[in-house]
Design a protein around this nucleic acid. Structure first.
Lengths: 245, 245
DNA sequence: TGCAATTAAATTGTCAGACAATTACCTTCC
DNA sequence: GGAAGGTAATTGTCTGACAATTTAATTGCA
């Protein structure tokens, strides 16, 4: 809990790191109240605005929440699955878009992870997730659906597939992998033919899960992975050609 | 780019959200420079400290970096894989510890995801990753190794296995799943017998990857998952008994 | 006594202004 | 022409103050 006033790093970053370490290590437990900003300022021998900047850093990561008033203050926040999902999706999306990750690599990662979920989804076969997937397939079959909506429905179906595994930790890890693909998928123009092929594979996947046939689900997912990869490669090739010409 | 001064949310949170949206949507591209703090303050009609709190929120998520001096300012940061790994591990660890995720659930998620990597690792079989895994196995066999070091070596071996898939996106997603298990694994007391069993399975996994036998690797991983689950359940049962008695 | 309204206190949120530290650029002098 | 120094721009930090919000205590009244 000591700072280096001569360090090249910001004081607020050092303070945030010190408090974060105490949270991660478990010294500060959930719902515990941090000292007031004035007390923290005195403790670290800095001004209140500097402390505030540090607290905002922690708030940005959902590590603390603040409350005004007499009994207010900063409290250690219980990181909910919903918040973690959101952070995961944001980070994954930015990671892919900013580092020019190729369609191939992102696609391979996504389907490898999804195939890990399929056996669990098949074994547990929750009715509501099956219903969600059927509903998305119905939506994908609607004529006049835009490519963007088709992609959104595709993502929703795959999210249902993942959630069907009944393991929230798995859902958390997969959330980013599935959602971050959407911007890449949105670059694809889906013909009636390709939509039909995808819907057919989606149906095979859901059928297999319903009958708890894990290997059939895996086979269909594998085909879907290959097919998606083909579509993506065509688009990327066309883009490269258009960009060069 | 407008704020609601009557909103219950902090102004700094609103400003951060506005800028974050522009980054995620791609309107602000990598290495672009934001207006200076004074200009932002004028634009949003708030004071500079408020703008600074907003910028610190973004800095906490590695979305921007700041630089002092005449040509300094806040720049859109390219989210590196290394930074994303770190965030992923922190979030995953906190998610597990704060939500009292059971050993079973965390373990299931971890091994399901790892088994998704094994076929790719076997197919690509990078020498340096094989070497890393062999080195960790050697370390695990050393007498006098503490349980904590044994766990750390276990994590390192599995990280090498995951990295061996040669897909950085996959490594990113798996980083949290593998690392976040360490605190849970640290609760286990490893007997000489159990260490031997684990080392044996590790050896089988590495051998299988070296010979590019994906199914053998999967089988060994599956056994390791079952064995780890058994160890964990014993510990949890003992803890529950001790806690109740 | 019991209850409601008011007041006080504590805490975060925001603002204004100032100075320090750092860095790039320009000017001046040799 | 090159090097030294000065200047401007920008972030980092500090001080002090006031506003908004919430809880707790206090007071007044029936």
């Amino acid at each position: 809990m000591k700072l280096d006033h001569a360090s090249p790093k910001d004081l607020s970053a050092q303070i945030a790191a010190a408090i974060r370490d105490e949270i991660v290590s478990g010294k500060l437990i959930v719902d515990a109240r941090l000292p007031s900003e004035s007390e923290l300022a005195e403790h670290f021998a800095v001004s209140r605005p500097t402390v505030r900047e540090a607290l905002k850093r922690l708030a940005a990561q959902s590590l603390i929440r603040t409350q005004r008033g007499a009994t207010g203050g900063a409290f250690i926040n219980r990181l909910s699955f919903a918040e973690a999902y959101g952070q995961q999706i944001t980070t994954s999306t930015l990671l892919l878009s900013m580092n020019a990750v190729s369609f191939d690599v992102a696609c391979e990662a996504r389907y490898a992870l999804e195939r890990a979920c399929a056996p669990l989804s098949a074994a547990r076969r929750a009715q509501d997730h099956l219903d969600r997937m059927r509903a998305e397939i119905a939506r994908q079959s609607r004529p006049g659906l835009s490519d963007e909506d088709f992609c959104a429905s595709d993502v929703a179906l795959h999210r249902a597939l993942v959630d069907g595994a009944g393991n929230p930790v798995l859902s958390y890890h997969l959330a980013g992998a599935v959602e971050a693909m959407q911007p890449l998928m949105n670059m694809i123009t889906f013909t009636a033919r390709s939509r039909g092929a995808i819907i057919g594979l989606h149906t095979r996947i859901v059928d297999a899960i319903q009958t708890q046939d894990a290997s059939a689900a895996d086979a269909a997912l594998s085909e879907l992975a290959d097919y998606t990869l083909t579509l993506g490669r065509d688009v990327m090739a066309a883009h490269a050609k258009g960009g060069a010409g």
